[in-house]
Each structure stands twice: as C-alpha cells, then as structure tokens.
C-alpha cells in the first residue's frame, strides 16, 4: 500500500520537475538521452576495482541538480530508496573475496573495494537516469525515442502505459483500502483472495482498454500515431553534448583526482 503511494508520488514529482523551464530543461531531449547514455557507458566501463577515478563523474549530477534547479532532498531520497537494494547486491563481494590489498597504507579486503566501486557506480548511474527524466519528462522523452526511429506505435503504447499507471494505481489502492478495512491486521492480501482480487481489476482494465480504444477511434485513430513537429537540434544542443562527452572521455582516460593529488602532495 505505502509502496504504491510512494511510487505514484515519486512519478508525479518527477513529472512536475520536468515541467520547469531551465536551460537544462530546454536542451533537446535526444541530446540529453545521448549524453546520459555516454555517461552511463563511460561510468560502467571502469574496471571493478576503480574508486578514485570514478569521483570526477559526480560533477555531472551535481551540475545538473544546480542548473536545473532540482530539489536535492526528495530526489536523493528516491536514490537512497534503491540503495539498500544495491548494498544487498554488493555485500556478497566482501564475503567471497578476502584477498587483501594495500590502500594508502591500510590493508583492505579486495571484496570491499569491489563493493565500494559497485556502490559508487550504481549511485551514479541511477542518479543519471532519474535526472534524465526529471529534466525531460515522458512526453519529451518520447520525442527522443521517435528521433531514434523507434516505431511510433510503440512510442504511443509506452505513453499510454505511463498515462494509465496513475489511474490504475489509484484504482488498485482503492480496492486494497476496501480490502484491508474488512481484514484488519492482515499483512498483504490473503493468498486465496489474490486471483479474484487481481482478476477483477484485470477485467475492468480490459473494459477500460475498450473504452479508451473507442475514444481514440472516435477521434480518427486508425492504427497510426500522428505527432506534432519535432524540434530541430540547435548549435547549443550539439555544444552541450560535445562538452560533456569530452569531459567524460578525459575523465575516463586520465585519473583526474590522482593528478590533482600529485600536484598537492608533490609526488610524481
């Protein structure tokens, strides 16, 4: 029940944020998608013991947060919600890999290094995905998909799913509320009730799909999805993409923190 309300309010928050009008929001959706993909690819391409080299990549989310005027706390909360999941994933590494490694004079188990590396990578990649949608929104994301030659019918279907998630989650929570009022102290649905509970909603979903189809059909839908014009890429968009890509690639090739550190500690 609470996870349902949470997901719904998170989706709605991201939807609201995507309607802001900052310079980041105005960057072409395709460019933002491609920038995100380059970012993810570069971050993920680091080997499993890398920690220090990953740190410069935190610049990207921080700058997006700042320029797009996004509220840090609620988005961080969303990311932290996934974090226990990641910890669960990574914690087995130290369990299985006990070989030691010297790190700044301290011996650490390699498993922990891998764990930390995964944790950082996961935080960065999850943040990047959420920031993409928080500065783009589903409608404009759909534009990017269409520019990538994804069939329009599939794009329409994704948009429909997105649209009806909130309708259906509300419907489901209403039914769960009605159920739990008559079944106090029960955790989750009783197993035997599941089939008819979900089945009822499913049948209503079929009926709704029928009505939605009629509504579409009455307004001339014949299986083809016509959309508005797509905005062209501007020089600004290309510059944005080029600048970030350059930064990502440089940060991938050179270990920037080590370079900075050497300057200060005078080693080299």
């Amino acid at each position: 029940m609470s996870n349902m309300i949470n997901s719904l309010s998170n989706m709605r928050l991201l939807d609201d944020l995507a309607r802001k009008e900052t310079f980041i929001h105005r960057i072409h959706p395709l460019i933002k998608l491609l920038t995100t993909v380059v970012y993810l690819t570069v971050v993920v391409s680091f080997e499993r013991y890398e920690i220090i080299g990953l740190l410069p990549f935190i610049f990207y989310p921080i700058l997006i947060f700042a320029f797009a005027e996004l509220p840090v706390a609620p988005i961080l909360k969303m990311i932290l919600l996934i974090e226990p999941f990641i910890i669960g994933i990574g914690i087995l590494n130290p369990l299985f890999d006990h070989s030691k490694v010297l790190f700044g004079g301290i011996a650490i188990s390699k498993g922990w290094v891998t764990f930390l590396s995964i944790l950082i990578k996961c935080s960065l990649t999850v943040t990047a995905s959420i920031l993409l949608i928080a500065t783009t929104g589903m409608d404009r994301f759909a534009v990017a998909l269409r520019m990538l030659k994804i069939p329009k019918i599939f794009v329409l279907q994704i948009l429909l799913t997105y649209r009806y998630i909130s309708v259906l989650i509300e419907e489901v929570s209403r039914m769960i509320r009605a159920y739990s009022l008559r079944a106090p102290g029960q955790k989750g649905l009783k197993w035997s009730a599941w089939g008819s509970f979900a089945g009822q909603i499913l049948l209503r979903t079929f009926e709704r799909a029928e009505r939605v189809y009629q509504a579409m059909n009455l307004r001339g839908f014949t299986g083809e999805y016509y959309t508005g014009d797509i905005a062209k890429l501007s020089f600004k968009d290309l510059a944005y993409f080029a600048a970030w890509s350059l930064f990502f690639i440089i940060a991938r090739i050179y270990n920037i923190p080590v370079l900075i550190g050497s300057l200060f500690t005078g080693v080299i």
């Binding site: 329409l156 429909l160 799913t161 009806y164």
Partner: peptide, 13 residues
Amino acid sequence: IPLMGVMGAFVFA
C-alpha cells in the same frame, strides 16, 4: 495498441 498500453499499466500496478 490501447489494450497493450492499459495492460502495461495494470501489470505495473
């Protein structure tokens, strides 16, 4: 198309 769209939302919920 609408059936797939709404069914996707159903599975999600």
